[in-house]
Design a protein around this nucleic acid. Structure first.
Length: 290
DNA sequence: ATTGAGTCCTGAAGGC
DNA sequence: TGCCTTCAGGACTCAA
């Protein structure tokens, strides 16, 4: 399931195929994903040249020469595949190699096809004027970007102070920190040695200063994300890079999916447990995560 | 206002 | 083998 490292990996895969290229036509196989495609979606994209591809949290932002930005979210099961540019798939009709759950095809003027596939349809596409993407649309209200270098302990303390939710729920809240999902929250809490059940606000001292636990989290979150990014993300179920290859970080999980296994922290000796928190699986080591 | 529960969706996995 | 149930979870809506 694409979280920040997976989305960033996909963004990097799309750049060489799309930046500087012109969209010839867009074909939709249905009217909606999680939400309807915006009005005039295909018409507003046709003939436009891609000027750049950025990322915000789990969103991919494709800037166009029209002044609009195409906002892409992969949900749980979304993926892109690139066809045609290198001759692997012959150019031709839009759906030449159509697969089940292909919902949108972006055909470029060089006959490359960027195909969006999403079995669960939790994904999202929107078209927003680039000038207002931070205040209108899906990106409005997103919290701290965890790899921008702004994730310091004092900053985290400000964000968590007074919160009566668990630290697990707080780290999953995209309005606080944007880009983490269930996997990397579990991993970051394991790395930091913090129990997912502690109240977020209780990690902040009465004077507003960060506790040692917040300090460790501020270090662990970017560390875990960068490690995953280097590995090309984690491949579980539907995640694949744009070239179809798989990331490998799932082999380095320390907590997620390891219920009943020995904790691999040096000298810990605990056992990873699975519990349900806010309707989601939480994996942690009760021995060293306190 | 803040927080938590329910909802959407399909495919994989497990039970019998 | 095959049918059935359960689970996965990002972001949204709704209610307490």
């Amino acid at each position: 399931m694409p979280e920040l490292p997976e989305v960033e990996t996909i963004r990097r895969g799309l750049i060489p195929a799309m930046v500087g290229k012109t969209i010839a036509a867009v074909s939709l196989a249905r009217a909606d994903l999680r939400r309807p495609f915006p009005r005039g979606f295909a018409r507003r994209l046709a003939g436009r040249t891609v000027s750049g591809i950025e990322r915000r949290a789990k969103y991919i932002v494709v800037a166009l020469d029209s002044g609009d930005s195409l906002i892409l979210h992969l949900g749980m099961s979304g993926s892109f595949r690139i066809e045609g540019a290198d001759g692997r798939a012959p150019p031709g009709t839009l759906h030449h190699t159509a697969q089940k759950h292909d919902h949108a095809v972006f055909r470029l003027t060089n006959e490359t096809r960027i195909v969006y596939n999403d079995p669960r349809r939790f994904g999202l596409m929107d078209l927003i004027p680039t000038a207002v993407i931070d205040t209108d649309g899906p990106l409005a209200g997103l919290g701290l970007e965890p790899l921008d270098g702004d994730l310091s302990a004092p900053r985290l303390a400000v964000l968590l102070r007074g919160r009566r939710i668990s630290i697990k729920a707080a780290l999953l809240d995209q309005r606080i920190i944007a880009g983490l999902g269930n996997i990397y929250v579990c991993e970051a809490l394991w790395e930091a040695g913090v129990s997912p059940f502690r109240l977020a606000g209780n990690l902040v001292r009465a004077n507003g200063k960060p506790s040692a636990a917040i300090g460790r989290l501020a270090t662990a979150i970017p560390k875990v994300l960068r490690s995953a990014l280097v590995a090309g993300g984690s491949s579980l179920r539907n995640y694949a890079r744009t070239d179809g290859s798989l990331g490998t970080f799932q082999h380095r999980f320390r907590a997620y999916g390891r219920e009943g296994e020995k904790c691999t922290r040096n000298g810990c000796g605990g056992t990873i447990t699975r519990s349900v928190q806010n309707g989601r699986s939480t994996f942690h080591c009760p021995r060293h995560q306190r």
